[in-house]
């Protein structure tokens, strides 16, 4: 039972990682990061059941709060990007070269 939840959580996490690297739209990339965070929330809840304590539930709530703060900032950056370039494609931004 708990095993299934963990497998699902790992699958979601991997989907998030693939999304960050494969997609080129800023929105989609950020949604992938959020997916990764939620995958870890699911893992926390499943492990809380396994460990028979409530710590995992509290930690998942805290992670949600931080993820919300991060999303607020990301949306501000989206507006900034759109105002300056009119596009949200991450390929457009190559002024800085590593």
């Amino acid at each position: 039972m708990i095993h299934d939840y963990l497998v699902l959580s790992v699958i979601l996490f991997c989907l998030g990682v693939v999304g960050v690297f494969a997609r080129r739209n800023f929105f989609t990339v950020f949604m992938s990061v959020e997916l990764m965070l939620n995958a870890s929330n699911l893992a926390f809840i499943a492990f809380a059941r396994l460990q028979q304590n409530m710590d995992g539930h509290v930690l998942a709530l805290l992670i949600m709060a931080v993820a919300a703060a991060e999303a607020a900032l990301a949306l501000a950056v989206v507006i900034l990007l759109h105002k300056q370039t009119g596009k949200l494609d991450t390929n457009v931004f190559s002024l800085l070269k590593g």
Binding site: F30, S40, Q51, G56
Partner: peptide
């Protein structure tokens, strides 16, 4: 330039943060 910098940093920083939470979940488990 600084908008591009914040975009790259935000995505990669949040990505690293997600790794930290997933790692914490496993260690907690």
């Amino acid at each position: 330039l600084s908008t591009e910098a914040v975009m790259k940093y935000l995505i990669l920083g949040a990505f690293a943060g997600a790794f930290l939470t997933m790692g914490s979940a496993f260690v907690y488990g």
